[in-house]
């Protein structure tokens, strides 16, 4: 698909886990302000793709460019670039030894070099935005999964990132908590945040995505608008996948 103003570009990306070829010549471009949902069967490489975009997984060949800059090797330059690309994990990964407020403030102070008061003020704004201002002094373990994930989103937003990556953000949540997280994500999408979302939530893909990328066996099989993808999938692989998950 043609993208006007590319923010994240992957060209010919390859990665192996031992003998398993998890990413096979993957090309993907995400435009500024675009919401791209990546779906596919488990083991198709979608999480790896997401993690490769800020080099939590290193790739063997190919090029990954963020806002015109190729991803550098591990070091200061990579850290700077990662600060521009937020990440939300399946297992939340909130810092267990810090309060909710400190979780959101930590990287602002360490990386953005903000004063503690300034960082805390910003953190409270963001916590308010995700509906958790009242829980600022609690520890992560005292919150429900949905609340923890919303804190994790606030923590990523605190860096004022250019894009957010979501690696199955609702897969570890109880069903009744999924919506509170999806609502926050919907709101971000409406506000024009560039997002790459790996998910199994087809409802979110339909309502919030500009594009749906379907992956299978380490390849991008389809890359189309949600409307087209869900009504008339082209590939057999996608038809099979959709028939399995949309049956109920």
């Amino acid at each position: 698909m043609a993208v006007v103003d590319p923010l994240i570009e992957l060209r010919g990306v390859n990665k192996h886990y031992g003998a398993l070829h998890v990413l096979q010549d993957v090309d993907l471009t995400v435009g500024r302000g675009e919401v791209v949902v990546v779906i596919g069967p488990s083991g198709s490489g979608k999480s790896t793709l997401c993690r490769a975009m800020n080099r939590l997984e290193r790739v063997e060949s190919g090029e990954i460019v963020i806002d015109g800059q190729p991803l550098p090797d591990e070091g200061k330059a990579l850290a700077r670039l990662r600060a521009e690309v937020g990440m939300v994990f399946q297992s939340f990964n909130l810092f267990a030894h810090k309060t909710v407020l400190a979780n959101v403030s930590l990287a602002q102070i360490k990386v953005r070099k903000r004063k503690k008061e300034e960082a805390d003020r910003r953190s409270r704004e963001l916590l308010d935005r995700v509906g958790l201002a009242a829980h600022a002094e609690k520890y992560p373990a005292q919150l429900s999964g949905g609340q923890q994930q919303r804190v994790a989103i606030a923590r990523a937003l605190a860096m004022d990132p250019k894009a957010l990556l979501f690696d199955e953000p609702t897969s570890a949540l109880d069903p009744e908590m999924i919506n509170e997280v999806l609502e926050v994500m919907q709101q971000l999408a409406r506000e024009g945040m560039t997002m790459v979302v790996v998910t199994h939530e087809m409802g979110f893909a339909r309502s919030a995505a500009n594009r749906v990328v379907f992956m299978a066996d380490g390849r991008i099989v389809e890359d189309r608008t949600p409307e087209e993808f869900f009504t008339t999938p082209r590939s057999e692989r996608a038809k099979d996948f959709l028939s399995k998950i949309l049956k109920h």
Partner: peptide
């Protein structure tokens, strides 16, 4: 592992990740 990954994904350096997130735990 996720604790260190979260810190790195926020742009924290190796020593910041070790010092502020991993070692205190």
């Amino acid at each position: 592992r996720g604790q260190g990954e979260a810190a790195r994904s926020l742009g924290m350096s190796f020593s910041q990740t070790l010092g502020a997130v991993v070692l205190p735990q």
